[in-house]
Design a protein around this nucleic acid. Sequence first.
DNA 1: GTCTATACGTGGATAGAC
DNA 2: GTCTATCCACGTATAGAC
Lengths: 204, 204
Amino acid sequence: MDDAHEGPAAGRAHSRSGTRETILSTATRLIQESGVRALTLDKVAAACGIAPSALTHHFASKDELLTALIARRDEVQEARTVTRDMPGREVLRAWVGLSAHNVQDRHMVELFAMVSVAAGAEDHPAHDFFAARYVALTEMLEGSFAQVKESGGLRDGVDPGVAAQQIVALTDGLQVQWMLDPSVDMPAILRAHLDDQLVDPLGR
Amino acid sequence: MDDAHEGPAAGRAHSRSGTRETILSTATRLIQESGVRALTLDKVAAACGIAPSALTHHFASKDELLTALIARRDEVQEARTVTRDMPGREVLRAWVGLSAHNVQDRHMVELFAMVSVAAGAEDHPAHDFFAARYVALTEMLEGSFAQVKESGGLRDGVDPGVAAQQIVALTDGLQVQWMLDPSVDMPAILRAHLDDQLVDPLGR
DNA sequence: GTCTATACGTGGATAGAC
DNA sequence: GTCTATCCACGTATAGAC
């Protein structure tokens, strides 16, 4: 993982200060244990064995820390789902599988949903980051849908660009419903949506 | 404490507590002007011309106030879109129209998204309220889809219950994308989704 | 029952010394 | 880079006046 493109306060490539990574994994662990709402910078610092204000040197604000957590999780999940050169259809299948995996990480889903919604506000520090994130995401998926379309796998009238926006939106929205009611079957509902668009069902 | 254990839902039965309504509309106005992030209880109180702690007597917490704002908006929008006895197909059309209307209320969309996501956390005070809200919403829409299905308007394999969850999730998720990129055409994407499920397109 | 005044706790940001 | 120390905003709780 290259931390080359990181935020404003990104360090040199060689710095590799283990502290930053320690903070990220510690914060992740705390969230997985007790949820985002319970997370305070003080607790993170304490769990890291450093002073609260020492965090400031690595992450200028709480929002920045949370955003870094998500960026970090993205890398892991991207590696888990989308390998370059993967056929479009397989990307879609992997996408559905991802939502199945997320069910085991409730608090991380909460974190993700909370921060991406907060970033929707124009004055939020991570607004641009998330905007770019969604552009990249939908473009990637649009490519997958386009690939399926070229091989005649898409039903008439289904536009790859629109389909990409839909699958992303559906995924985000389902997380909200699932948080409110864990019996909501995210993968099944996603698959049903795709099956409405694909000539041949994804199967399982 | 006031009467009984009134949930975050807040009542509409004992409607006229003048001040309560003043607080709600003032808070709404402040949010529409400056967004949710900028809203503090102090500002609300100041704008209402009352002391900050006077808010406590009407809304026990900030979460409760925000939830009441959403409940209030629900009533307006419900009246705007869904009239009882409205044919299922018309409900769906009205639902799409609603998203077109929301575009004019960016900050209220932010409020809605932010609170409903926050309420996803199990320890959030409004968790149960929002869970019930989504159940009511999806059941209403499921009824509409079922009605369309009975008249043969639904494509094979489309389940009314799943379709209801999908349209709600899609709407929520699209709001996130739209906040990050206002060029996202929510109504068009919603309509495209419905047209994939309906035998005859919704048209316009 | 509704308002005011005041104070407390928490949590995030800031400044400067080592 | 990390610390100590401080400050301030905000939400919440308490006591009391009308």
